[in-house]
Computed example of a mutant assay.
Amino acid sequence: MRSRGTRGAVVAVFCAVAVLLLGACGTQVAGQGGTIAPPTATGPIPWTTAQPAAVTGARLGDDHRTLLLDTQVPSGKHPCVRDLKAVLTDPMTDLARVQITFSSPSGDTRSGCNGESTATVRLELPEPLGGRDVIVDDYVRFTVDGAKPPALRLCGELGCHPPATGCTAASYDQALMAVDAPEHTYRDSERCDGKWLVLDFSWRTGPACDDTTDPACSSRLGDRWFFRAEKSGWKPIAEGAARGCQNVQRKEPAFPSSMCDALAPLSPSLHPSYPPPSASPTPTPAS
């Protein structure tokens, strides 16, 4: 028979092992059948280098050398940004190329930096900006051309000088962007009078291959849109693959019939909204 001291030692060892197991694997909750996850990691929250989520505005100081840039940066209950700075990445030529960086703990969820706020960063240029454009972080562009000083004008997706609305290839490209046409879209036909536009376009759907006789290599989808000219460019007003004017004149009665009366319907294979043709019933063999 084991002595009381031996049994006590065994119990003590068992309890010690149980404590180690619970510490490593979590604790079981009675009646819930689950395990409480171990506590999250502790220790200092790291600060890492980042770039602004957006650069929303730019303006010049009275000396025409001080550039002020408005940025969107992380925010929260505690400090979320430090060392916000802007630097020239190249010597000024016909452009001023700028990079904005800052340090933030926002990459760690414990930081609480899950909001966003506006912060302005200042950059002293080596000489007056003059007529140069400013490019920030390689993708945001500002120009003095057409701007209202001291502000610079933010350029859009079509650049700082988008093409005027008209019956031109560049103008049709703007119309395709306005309707989020798929990448690698090509225009099939246009009807344009400077104020109104009908645009048919299509895009490949098959694999990339050179055999144009293989339907799998030449299959495509397409669409037809109707536009009205506005100061900002072509504005889409209706879409549809049907014959004639019914799609557009239902939404815009002023659309000229001369531009849509003769429109043929798009082929079902070219328009994704066409329902697939119903299958013909299979004849039942005579008994």
Rank of each mutant, 00 (worst) to 15 (best):
residue 210 D to H: 14
residue 149 P to T: 04
residue 101 T to G: 11
residue 268 P to S: 00
residue 117 S to C: 07
residue 159 G to L: 12
residue 248 V to F: 09
residue 9 A to M: 13
residue 105 P to A: 07
residue 78 H to F: 14
residue 204 R to S: 08
residue 73 V to T: 14
residue 12 A to I: 02
residue 9 A to K: 12
residue 73 V to Y: 00
residue 46 P to N: 08
residue 28 Q to Y: 10
residue 176 L to V: 01
residue 274 Y to R: 12
residue 40 T to W: 07
residue 140 V to L: 05
residue 139 Y to W: 11
residue 207 P to L: 13
residue 90 D to A: 13
residue 217 C to L: 03
residue 75 S to Q: 08
residue 20 L to I: 14
residue 216 A to M: 11
residue 101 T to E: 12
residue 136 V to D: 00
residue 120 T to S: 05
residue 278 S to T: 15
residue 76 G to L: 06
residue 156 G to E: 02
residue 238 A to M: 03
residue 277 P to D: 11
residue 286 A to R: 15
residue 29 V to Q: 12
residue 129 L to S: 09
residue 185 T to G: 02
residue 133 D to M: 14
residue 167 C to S: 05
residue 286 A to I: 12
residue 168 T to A: 13
residue 159 G to N: 07
residue 166 G to Y: 05
residue 52 P to D: 12
residue 136 V to H: 00
residue 75 S to L: 04
residue 50 A to F: 00
residue 248 V to R: 08
residue 261 D to I: 13
residue 223 D to K: 08
residue 54 A to Y: 06
residue 172 Y to K: 06
residue 152 L to F: 04
residue 11 V to I: 15
residue 38 P to G: 10
residue 254 A to W: 11
residue 11 V to R: 14
residue 101 T to Q: 14
residue 16 A to G: 14
residue 84 L to V: 08
residue 123 L to S: 07
residue 99 Q to H: 06
residue 154 L to H: 05
residue 190 E to S: 10
residue 248 V to T: 01
residue 271 H to P: 02
residue 64 H to M: 12
residue 172 Y to W: 02
residue 51 Q to A: 12
residue 197 L to T: 04
residue 192 C to Q: 04
residue 148 K to P: 00
residue 151 A to N: 14
residue 220 R to E: 07
residue 53 A to C: 03
residue 33 G to P: 09
residue 271 H to T: 15
residue 50 A to R: 12
residue 137 D to Q: 13
residue 227 F to I: 11
residue 12 A to E: 01
residue 182 P to W: 03
residue 94 D to G: 11
residue 207 P to R: 11
residue 236 P to W: 03
residue 59 R to C: 10
residue 147 A to I: 09
residue 188 D to W: 07
residue 183 E to H: 13
residue 20 L to A: 15
residue 9 A to H: 06
residue 97 R to Y: 10
residue 261 D to S: 15
residue 56 T to L: 15
residue 91 P to L: 00
residue 183 E to Y: 06
residue 37 A to N: 07
residue 104 S to I: 11
